[in-house]
Design a protein around this nucleic acid. Sequence first.
DNA 1: TCAAATTGGGCATTTTAAGACTCATTAGAC
DNA 2: GTCTAATGAGTCTTAAAATGCCCAATTTGA
Lengths: 110, 110
Amino acid sequence: MKRPRSYSRVTKQTLSILGKLIKAGRLERELTAAELSERAGISRKTLRNIENGEAGTEIGIVFEVATLVGVRLFDVDDRAGAMHSAHLEEKLTLLPKRVRPSRQEVDDDF
Amino acid sequence: MKRPRSYSRVTKQTLSILGKLIKAGRLERELTAAELSERAGISRKTLRNIENGEAGTEIGIVFEVATLVGVRLFDVDDRAGAMHSAHLEEKLTLLPKRVRPSRQEVDDDF
DNA sequence: TCAAATTGGGCATTTTAAGACTCATTAGAC
DNA sequence: GTCTAATGAGTCTTAAAATGCCCAATTTGA
């Protein structure tokens, strides 16, 4: 055992759904695994891992492939994309930049 | 330069938004980076990469952290999660299992 | 039915992320 | 203003992902 990492059910399901969305998108566009993987600049095996919902693939690659087959996680298109992001930015500036240093028993742990 | 991988704007924006959502979720729950990273079983540096929208983190870890702070990509909760997945499964069975071997000039390439 | 092409999976190698440690910076409670 | 702790960032080591190659299995068009 090297690094036995565990994933929650929600994580596994999310990965599975995303993989299936990507595979469906690829088939709808009639792209072979070889074609899509080449366009994405990855190997055919990595694409298969993604479509199978494997947890180990790096997220940038997965999102890139998703984008290539038209799967969008947020309402991000090239124009309005920054909007959603800006709203988040605003929210982040409203939130404290750090968690309060002095613990004061929030009893949030259980 | 080893493997200069490039990511589309949509991919970068998606990563950025997801990272900000996670950071916002962490701050709202008043978790320090150390606390959240420990709960996720990852290092503080990896968490920072995620919140900064870096592309290199493995997707399972990112989704796990997102789950921990309440960020859901799909409407996946522990009960109904399989439903969405089942619908996709159905869609996938309807689609051809493979792309047609004989290319017939779909002129989709440009 | 047949055959071409896609898909699936193992294996060795290369590339890279993740971890652990340290130190500098900065926010924010007092 | 001060002091504490959270954050940001760099380096080195280690573990694992990604690749490329191979060949087997399966689909599907003809």
